[in-house]
Design a protein around this nucleic acid. Structure first.
Lengths: 339, 339
DNA sequence: CTGAAAGCGCTTACAG
DNA sequence: CTGAAAGCGCTTACAG
């Protein structure tokens, strides 16, 4: 590798390293002559300051870390995109890490972000409050939670209030005559998995729907668990007539499994998925979803992190969720079938 | 932020900074006593070495950069996942950048990766050979191209040979009686956009199919351009009976537009998309695709980059593509409609 | 096996 | 406005 340092630039420009550094950092205490000579030398050598060395002195890296549990989940891919674009506006470059829904990988990326001394971290966490997340808090590294939180870890967060959307979905399904709704839950090791589950139980209870434990299957937010859940639920003696799925990858698996059974969503079994992922609207029939705003979430997280970096203490934000009805849940229950 | 340095550890352990550093780096020239005392101090202080300072001396960061044009494109989200997992196995952490299909953002991330002195860069580039990619080559920073290349920039690459898959698709459509195939092309500023376009023209010409220029619309690899292309193509006096789309985001837009026109893929208009994206198989009818292996591509890119980092000069690799026929292109052309 | 010292590439008071 | 010097947090020959 060819290495060009500030010394090379200084030598070519015929000024000291100190002056070169001042020109480079826009320090006004420089002469026009020095400026032009340094800039010429920089251009000629294609000089790039070593960010490591710079950060070592100035303790600012102008980088933030974003840790998502699964880049292949379109919700998090979208989130990565919005966070990154919002950060760029404020001069931060985003280092994206993918925990792959695994605690050890999350810790590994967290360690790495700490070691790289990013200016702040936005994390959609998994697991409990053990491991490296504790170090982040202990070192008072600016950090905010996005989408998910960890109980007992006191960090500002921007999350979705699942209650409204899930209640709307349950009410909607109940109005169509569904009394047995199957719920494909997310992992209870995640805050979103727990919250959505609690929202469902509460809403179904309030509506007087069946709370038969067999109607609830716990998945891991990944497609295969959605397929498995469908196979389990539809094999029940009294199968559910509607399904509520806690995220889109599991919905993907669930829909595939339903098709494989020769059944059709909407008519044979109603289906509503959390997360308003674009291709869900393209299916036939289009899938009803509980939508929440990825764009708001990303933008707000970046704002909050900037506040923390500047020494502030922002309030946590809860974003609303709401039901978007499509054909996958528009058919009333056939009275001859139910019961 | 709380800052703990190697000095704090050394002081607590009662040894010198040099010894502490040796223990930390696994240097065998250390006593068992020193090791245990240092490890105890590290644990007690939750010490994390400053990666910046470390890299400044050792010129190895154990980080690689991966620059993709669009994280929201499932193909690149999958690619990010496989690259990152493969890199992790070899002890590299992956810094993911998203160029958002924009040259200025690509340059910005590239500059940042250079400044951070990553050990190597894997990039799916866009644009010509100007800008920061030239600096990467000029500094001899280990780098490989993935999926896309740039003409005139001599870097090892792992790409897909579009010829085989597109030829199979064209032959398949021709065998069903299609003579006018509409082609929704990718941007000609990308190598994949150009290659797939050339493959199509060659295959269609060889089969004696119409090469009416009106049948070819250039998109930008994003959904909206797919929709626009469909509106243009299906409004022709002699519309195509089949569509070949150069990537899945455009296919997404195209399918949405077709549905909005009240038409059905497969029966009203055949459709084949490049990229084997999971939800394309879930649509009704399932969409035929030209598949290529994301897993192989990611794994090979990491292998190649490791070779370059170790001073080698790996051969570029071309991966095959092949047609996967599904119902969106299984219906023969209705003779009463064609012509 | 261990420590003192130099140095990686920068920035920033301190003098002038 | 400019330069010499110290120092950021590490690693690594160099002596011992």
């Amino acid at each position: 590798m060819v290495t060009i340092t500030i010394k090379d630039v200084a030598a070519l420009a015929g000024v000291s390293v100190a002056t070169t550094s001042r020109v480079l950092s826009g320090n006004p205490a420089t002469s026009a002559d020095a400026r032009s000579r340094v800039h010429a030398a920089v251009a000629e050598l294609d000089y790039r300051p070593n960010a490591q060395a710079r950060a070592l002195r100035s303790t600012r890296t102008h980088a933030i870390g974003l840790l998502v549990p699964d880049v292949r989940n379109p919700f998090f891919a979208d989130l990565a995109h919005t966070v990154e674009q919002a950060a760029l506006v404020h001069g931060f470059v985003t280092l994206l890490g993918n925990a792959n829904e695994r605690k050890d990988q999350q810790d590994r990326y967290l360690d790495n972000l700490i070691a790289r001394r990013v200016d702040g971290i936005i994390v959609a966490p998994l697991g409990d409050g053990s491991g490296s997340i504790r170090s982040v808090v202990g070192r008072e590294i600016p950090a905010v939670f996005i989408d998910r939180t960890i109980e007992g870890i006191d960090l500002p967060s921007v999350t979705t209030d699942s209650d409204t959307g899930i209640r709307e979905a349950v009410d909607h399904l109940a109005a169509l005559g569904h009394t047995r709704i199957g719920y494909i839950a997310g992992p209870q090791s995640t805050s979103t998995g727990r919250e959505r589950y609690a929202s469902f139980v509460r809403a179904a209870g309030d509506r007087g729907l069946s709370l038969d434990p067999a109607l609830i299957v716990f998945g891991d937010f990944q497609p295969e668990s959605g397929s498995a859940a469908v196979r389990t639920l539809l094999a029940l003696t009294e199968p559910p007539t509607a399904l509520l799925v806690a995220d889109s990858p599991m919905a993907f698996g669930a829909i595939g499994a339903i098709q494989k059974l020769g059944l059709r969503i909407g008519t044979d079994v109603a289906l509503v998925s959390f997360d308003d992922i674009d291709w869900l609207a393209l299916l036939d029939p289009p899938v009803s979803v509980i939508a929440h705003s990825v764009a708001d979430m990303g933008r707000i997280a970046v704002e909050m992190l900037r506040t923390v970096i500047d020494g502030g203490r922002p309030e946590s934000v809860r974003l609303p969720s709401r039901l978007v009805v499509r054909a996958s849940s528009a058919t009333p229950v056939d009275p001859s079938r139910s019961r």
